[in-house]
Amino acid sequence: MVERPHKPSSLPNTAAAAKSAGPQPTVDISDDNSRITARLPSGESLTVLLYGATVVSWKNADGTDNLWVSEKAALDGSKPVRGGIPVVFPVFGPPPSNHATSSLPQHGFARNSRWEYLGKSTSEASAEPEASTTGTTADSSVKLDFGLSSSNLSPEARAAWPYDFGVVYSVTLGPNSLQTAVNVRNVGDKAWDFQVLFHTYLAIKDISKTHLTGLLGVTYTDKVLNASTATESNSKLAITGETDRVYKAIPQSTTTVIVDDKPRFDVIRDNLPDTVVWNPWKEKAAAMGDFSPDDAYKQMICVEAGAVADWTKLEAGDTWEGGVTCKSLL
C-alpha cells in the first residue's frame, strides 16, 4: 500500500450534535441551484459551482480571496471557468490521437459537466475548556462532497469515453486552508486509464515579486519550448515570461509560493506526483477572449497538482484517490 502522509482524515457528520455545539458552518444553495456556498464561524468562506464542481472563491476570514477568477469568466455553465479551481479528468491537455480519450475535449469532461451535490460533513474544534467560554465548541472545518458518474454525463461525453466510472470530489474548508480531493472508482468490467489535475489559479499581488520553492532538481517538460525536457536549476523559481511546465515525479510534497520574500501559499500534494506551473504572460493573456483584464497575468499564478505525466490504470472494481491542500499563509 502506498504510504500517504498527507492523506485527508475523514470528518464525522456532526449534525446530530449540533444542539450541544457552538456556532456551526453554514451551507447555502443558490436560488437557481447553480452554486454552493459554505462559511465557517471564524469567517472563512468557499463557493463551488455545480457546473464543473469548480471552486470559484476561497476567502480568508478578512475577506481576502485566495483564488483568481477572470472578470470575463463564464459562470453560467456555458463553458469551463477561467480561474478558480477547474477539475481536469480523465485527460490533461489535448487528448493524444492514439488513446481512448482521443475524442474528448481538452482537459476532459469533468470541468464542463454538471456535478451532483452530495452533502456536507463537519469537524469540531478542540473541546478543551479553554477553547470556549461557553462550554461549547465551534466546528472548525466543513467538507462538501460532489459526485459525477458515467450515468450523468452528457450523451456526447458518454459516447466519446464509454467507460463506467464514479468520482466523488471533496472540498474541505478549514482555517486558512482548502483541501480538494478526488476518489475515482472503476465500476465497470473493463480496465481504463486516466489523468487528473486540480487547475488551481492562485491570486497574488505581483508576479514580478513572486517565486516558487520546492522544485529544485525536478525534471520538467517545457511546453513553451516545444515540449523540451530540462531539470530545474533554481531553488527559487521566478516567472519572467510565458510559463507552461509540467514538473514530474516531485520528491518533495510541498511547493511554496513566495511573494515579496514572504511565504504566501503552501501547495501540499497527496498521491499526486506532478505539478504544472502556468502563467500566460502578456501576449497570450491578451489573445484569450475570457482572460480579463489583459494585464491580470500579473496577479495570478497557476500551481496545479496532478497525476498527468503518465497514465494511471484502474482495473475493474478498483479505486484511486489523491488530492491537494492549499494553505494561505497571510
Rank of each mutant, 00 (worst) to 15 (best):
39 R>C: 05
40 L>D: 01
42 S>T: 15
42 S>M: 11
42 S>F: 01
44 E>A: 08
46 L>I: 04
46 L>D: 00
47 T>E: 15
47 T>L: 13
47 T>N: 11
48 V>Y: 09
48 V>E: 05
50 L>N: 03
50 L>D: 01
53 A>Y: 06
53 A>Q: 01
54 T>Q: 03
55 V>H: 09
56 V>K: 05
57 S>Y: 04
58 W>T: 00
58 W>H: 00
62 D>M: 05
63 G>E: 02
63 G>A: 02
64 T>W: 01
65 D>V: 08
73 A>W: 09
73 A>P: 08
73 A>T: 02
74 A>T: 09
74 A>Y: 10
75 L>T: 00
75 L>V: 02
80 P>M: 11
80 P>L: 09
81 V>I: 14
82 R>V: 09
83 G>K: 10
83 G>E: 07
84 G>L: 13
86 P>Q: 06
87 V>C: 02
87 V>Q: 06
89 F>E: 09
90 P>T: 08
91 V>T: 09
101 T>K: 02
104 L>I: 06
106 Q>M: 15
106 Q>F: 00
106 Q>N: 15
106 Q>T: 14
109 F>M: 06
111 R>P: 12
112 N>P: 13
112 N>L: 14
112 N>S: 15
113 S>F: 03
113 S>E: 06
115 W>K: 04
115 W>I: 04
115 W>T: 03
116 E>R: 15
118 L>N: 12
119 G>I: 10
120 K>N: 12
121 S>M: 06
122 T>R: 10
124 E>G: 15
124 E>H: 15
124 E>K: 14
125 A>N: 12
126 S>G: 12
127 A>E: 13
130 E>R: 13
130 E>G: 11
133 T>I: 11
135 G>C: 04
135 G>K: 12
135 G>Y: 05
137 T>G: 11
138 A>W: 10
139 D>L: 06
139 D>A: 13
140 S>L: 02
141 S>Y: 00
142 V>R: 03
143 K>R: 15
144 L>Q: 06
145 D>E: 11
145 D>A: 07
147 G>Q: 07
149 S>L: 01
150 S>N: 14
151 S>Q: 11
152 N>M: 09
153 L>G: 05
153 L>P: 12
154 S>T: 14
156 E>C: 06
158 R>F: 08
159 A>W: 07
160 A>C: 05
162 P>D: 02
163 Y>I: 11
164 D>I: 07
164 D>A: 14
164 D>T: 14
165 F>H: 06
165 F>K: 10
166 G>C: 03
168 V>S: 02
169 Y>T: 12
169 Y>N: 07
169 Y>R: 04
170 S>C: 03
171 V>I: 15
172 T>H: 05
172 T>M: 09
172 T>K: 12
175 P>L: 08
176 N>A: 11
178 L>F: 10
179 Q>R: 13
180 T>M: 08
180 T>E: 03
